[in-house]
Design a protein around this nucleic acid. Structure first.
Length: 666
RNA sequence: GCCGGGAUAGCUCAGUCGGCAGAGCGAUUCACUCGUAAUGAAUAGGUCCGGGGUUCGAUUCCCCGUCCCGGCUCCA
């Protein structure tokens, strides 16, 4: 090897000699790794510009455009292009941050007037011009004071520079055709030039606080997305359309499942018969399965005295999430009022709507002396709770102010925690399977203790609880990740996510170990030694919120519920009026098998009836005419797939009953 | 809560530069009695989200409120 040569290694174990001072891009070519769209390089594990000079012995990998890392770099570069376009059009704009995010990017600007949709079009046009200009992204590194000088008129950049610990600050210059540059503070890496952008579009503008802090200025955020090809961009936009079509608020209205009447109030839904039938199936399933697995149902009221919430700690730790109290029993003529609406009256008792069910279950436990022989005690309730969510975060059933949890609290000994938690995880996986997520949880996370100051309980308690959950996960055989510091203030937890039909992740099940509430309520059980011991408590929900899970199912299935959940299993479509009588007999036969069947006796034409029920996503339409009535059969037209003619009614009833009982999908 | 955008028939939406309010679908009625995704006709249906203001006159302009949509975590 000559002095002018350096040696580089490739990701595939290959090796090559390149001239000293060669770039990462040149090294990739020498290694034969520059195949397809390569946007950047990973040099000794760190992503770098293709123009980075590499050192002797460096290990180099290609970062392709269609990798997650490649897309991030692409999106980050497009964010810069957008910022330059905004500078060109609105020279007074101040720049904040412009990172890549899942499926896109954004950039925050401080401008006098908010951007309008028309502004977005102008910005996008300007961006396309910048892409055509093939501007280089040139990296340079400067000392902190020079960087401060360069961005002296950009207060947000100055604040960022002050928060950066490195003494050397990197800046990327976009070199315009006339030789001038547009600089932006940036860690990089970036594309070599703007022309490397294959496809992008701007999407929307929204307000966003500087650094997400509502006490700081509200900036204008422009969202966009960029992809490695026009095809990939189109596919992404199609997916967004698909998500809009599946929106549970839209489907909920179209399929007459539920509504959110304005006069009822924000974040509160009423369930129509069609939605209620589906929900009832979910509730029946939950009740039956909990009973089968040794849980005991309990019921509790919707409100409770302030003293209860003081003892539980909710008024200390969760007051912001609670509805305000009602003051009752003031002793005067008044029947009471919401506190604050009337002044001066004699103090009564405050009652709060419950945001959680745990204190009530604790009261059930504490209603008498408990023996170790009763443990584990698994109390279960479909408990409706009310939480004061800020108006801006409400989102149909996915984020509501009133909803029902499939909630359970398991009281057990320290030794029983692992067994109980393992059972809960098995229960959850079975439930996911039965509701159409057969592949099981897509993400399992153990959340550990947040900073000590933000938590209650002893170090020993935390260590024991975290060890128990770790052992639970090991025994369950599920792959999991650790979310350090993401636990609740009273204990660590395990969270399970599922991924729906269009790739979105939803968190459902959560299992939390709690040694705080038993302490606060002074819970005890009498052990075999005759002495009192403190039980542990496990909080767990499987669906999480029934309402929210319903919305997830609705979107997952795009309204086409599996037969066992569908509001109507089968609708009988008579060809003409003279077949109504036979249609009634078919319905009766199906209903006798506990199937949900109806007769369409409207005077629509047959084609119109079929279209109507197809749009309503009824699993089976049963066509009956002269031939069927004579042979006591039906023509079965399933929601999807081929139709079958001349199916005997009894045979069909048995088939459908089996499909429903097996919770099979069509 | 904050920023931006909205709210017109049950639904989707048009419209009124301030002067009696529109379509399609749906509903109802009548006719049609039909063989696998829309039969035809007629009729009904509106506090133009609520309250206040400006005006001869407000669904339209202004203010306040309610509700809805998007966003407010992802560190240059």
């Amino acid at each position: 090897m000559s002095e002018q040569q350096v040696s580089v290694k490739g990701q595939d174990g290959g090796q090559a000699e390149v001239a000293a001072g060669a770039t990462a891009g040149e090294a990739l070519r020498a290694l034969g790794l520059f195949r397809g769209q390569v946007l950047a390089a990973r040099v000794d594990g760190q992503t770098r510009d293709l123009a980075t000079t590499i050192a002797d012995g460096a290990r180099i990998e290609a970062v392709p455009a269609d990798s997650e890392e490649g897309r991030q770099i692409l999106r980050h570069s497009v964010a810069h292009i957008m910022a330059q376009a905004v500078t060109d059009l609105y020279p007074e704009a101040k720049f904040a941050i412009g990172p890549p995010i899942d499926n896109g990017f954004y950039y925050d600007f401080d401008v006098a007037e908010p951007f309008t949709p028309t502004d977005l079009e102008r910005i996008e046009d300007r961006m396309r011009a910048i892409v055509r200009e093939d501007q280089a992204f040139q990296r340079r590194e400067l000392p902190r004071d020079e960087a401060l000088e360069l961005f002296a008129d950009q207060p947000y950049k100055v604040e960022i520079i002050h928060s950066v610990e490195d003494q050397v600050i990197s800046v990327y210059d976009n070199v315009r055709p006339d030789g001038t540059v547009w600089p932006d503070l940036c860690r990089g890496p970036h594309l070599p030039t703007t022309k490397w952008v294959p496809a992008f579009t701007l999407q929307r503008v929204a307000g966003a606080y500087w650094r997400g802090d509502e006490r700081r200025p509200m900036l204008q955020r422009i969202y966009g997305t960029a992809w490695e090809s026009r095809k990939a961009l189109k596919a992404h936009l199609r997916q967004l359309d698909e998500a809009r079509e599946r929106d549970h608020r839209k489907l909920g209205r179209e399929l007459d499942l539920l509504s959110f009447p304005e006069e009822l109030g924000a974040g509160l839904a009423v369930w129509h018969p069609n939605g209620a039938i589906v929900r009832k199936q979910m509730e029946d399933y939950a009740r039956a399965e909990h009973l089968r697995r040794g849980y005991e149902p309990v019921y509790s009221p919707h409100i409770g005295r302030s003293q209860l919430w003081e003892t539980s700690g909710h008024l200390d730790f969760y007051a912001d999430g609670m509805y305000p109290p009602m003051e009752l029993d003031t002793g005067g003529e008044s029947r009471g009022s919401v506190r604050g609406s009337e002044g001066g009256a004699q103090r009564g008792t405050d009652y709060y709507p419950k945001p959680m069910n745990c204190p009530f279950h604790v009261l059930v436990y504490r209603s008498r002396t408990r023996s170790y022989r009763e443990l584990p005690l698994r109390l279960f309730e479909l408990g409706t709770v009310y939480r004061y969510e800020r108006s801006g975060v409400l989102h149909g059933l996915l984020r509501a102010r009133g909803f029902t949890q499939d909630d359970s609290h398991i009281f057990c000994t320290a030794e029983q925690i692992v067994d109980e938690c393992v059972d809960v995880l098995e229960f959850a996986v079975d439930l996911f399977r039965d509701f159409g997520f057969a592949e099981g949880p897509s993400r399992v996370a153990l959340s550990t203790r947040p900073s000590k100051a933000a938590t209650v309980g002893t170090d020993e308690g935390w260590i024991h609880a975290e060890a128990a959950l770790t052992e639970t996960l090991e025994r369950s055989g599920l792959d999991y990740v650790v979310d350090a510091g993401e636990g609740a203030f009273y204990g660590p937890k395990i969270d399970l996510q599922v991924t729906d039909a269009i790739g979105r992740a939803w968190q459902l099940t959560t299992v939390q170990v709690d040694f705080n509430l038993p302490e606060r309520f002074g819970l005890a059980y009498v052990g075999p030694d005759g002495a009192e011991h403190r039980p542990y408590m496990i909080h767990r929900v499987l669906f999480g919120s029934l309402d929210r899970f319903f919305a997830i199912l609705l979107e997952h299935f795009a309204g086409a519920f599996p037969t066992w959940l569908a509001p109507v299993h089968a609708v009988v479509v008579p060809i003409s009026d003279r077949h109504h009588a036979y249609g009634d007999q078919v319905v009766a036969e199906l209903v006798a098998q506990d199937l949900r069947a109806t007769l369409d006796d409207s005077d629509d034409t047959m084609g119109a009836k079929i279209r109507k029920h197809q749009l309503a996503k009824v699993p089976y339409q049963l066509i009956v005419g002269d031939a069927e009535a004579a042979a006591r059969t039906v023509a079965v037209r399933p929601r999807q797939g081929d139709q079958r003619k001349d199916v005997p009614v009894a045979e069909l009833a048995a088939e459908l009953a089996a499909e429903v009982a097996g919770r099979r999908s069509l």
